[in-house]
């Protein structure tokens, strides 16, 4: 088993190198964009002006959950997580993971918002990290749960004001109560493989949440097994595969 694993680690390493390169490029390009103070210097000073950050500041700047990432890009390089390592997780871990998950989506099934900054005017390099999943300085960039779609920002939007230097108006008041994540799947008898309690639409890649990069509490005890549906049943209804209901007579 060690052979394939080594390859995996190497590939992840490559991904990180590419990630660093691309992120560096983006920050570089955008960083110079924000650094317009030099232009302003020749103008009369305005008290209310918000100072723009320079490229140098950028590294130290907070980036949501990625805040610390810049300090240790290479921390994640040596080796990926070991799929054979025993998973120790508690009910509390699961509750925490679900709670964290809930803060990033309007309801179970909604596309999660992006907890870090992205390139707003180009094509963001999301897939660099999220195609496979990776860890950067202890922060997990999960693998995306669905098949590849290239216009990622069509569904996933940032969770905070993307405009630099502006005052963000307060969030709107909305009474929507979203569907919560379902309970655990049913088992036919103790020890039977549980059924899948949620839809698998846009969640065909089980390992996104249940694999080695999944949050503790949601991980599979056997992430090396790749054919999940062999043992875990899906719900036809939840997946919109149920026989077409006879339409209601109008």
């Amino acid at each position: 088993m060690s052979e394939p694993r080594r390859t995996g680690a190497l590939e992840i390493g490559m991904v990180c190198v590419v990630a660093v390169a691309i992120v560096g490029l983006i920050s570089g390009v955008r960083g110079t964009g924000r650094d317009v103070r030099s232009y302003v210097a020749s103008q009369p000073a305005v008290d209310t002006q918000v100072a723009a950050r320079s490229y140098a500041d950028e590294r130290a700047a907070a980036h949501g959950p990625n805040a610390e990432a810049a300090a240790g890009w290479f921390g994640g390089l040596p080796g990926g997580p070991d799929p054979f390592a025993p998973v120790v997780q508690s009910a509390q871990d699961r509750a925490d993971a679900l709670a964290r998950r809930a803060t990033r989506r309007a309801f179970d099934g909604a596309p999660p918002t992006i907890p870090h900054r992205i390139d707003q005017h180009g094509v963001p390099a999301c897939l660099t990290c999220h195609d496979r999943g990776t860890t950067i300085a202890g922060v997990v960039a999960p693998r995306m749960s669905h098949e590849r779609h290239d216009s990622c920002v069509q569904c996933h939007v940032v969770a905070t004001d993307p405009r630099p230097g502006t005052v963000t108006p307060p969030a709107p008041d909305n009474g929507f109560v979203g569907l919560a994540a379902p309970a655990t799947g049913e088992r036919a008898w103790p020890g039977a493989p549980p059924t899948i309690p949620h839809t698998t639409r846009m969640r065909e890649r089980c390992d996104a949440c249940h694999g080695v990069y999944g949050a503790l509490g949601m991980r599979s005890s056997h992430p090396w097994r790749a054919s999940c549906l062999q043992c875990h049943g899906r719900s036809a209804e939840l997946d919109q595969r149920a026989p077409v209901a006879i339409p209601r007579t109008p």
Partner: peptide, 23 residues
């Protein structure tokens, strides 16, 4: 949250000529 307010998009050189900063 993702786009909380309108803005005016401007070329960097125009912003420089005017002497305005982001925001």
């Amino acid at each position: 949250r993702a786009m909380p307010q309108a803005y005016v998009e401007m070329h960097r050189d125009d912003a420089a000529a005017l002497g305005v900063a982001d925001g």
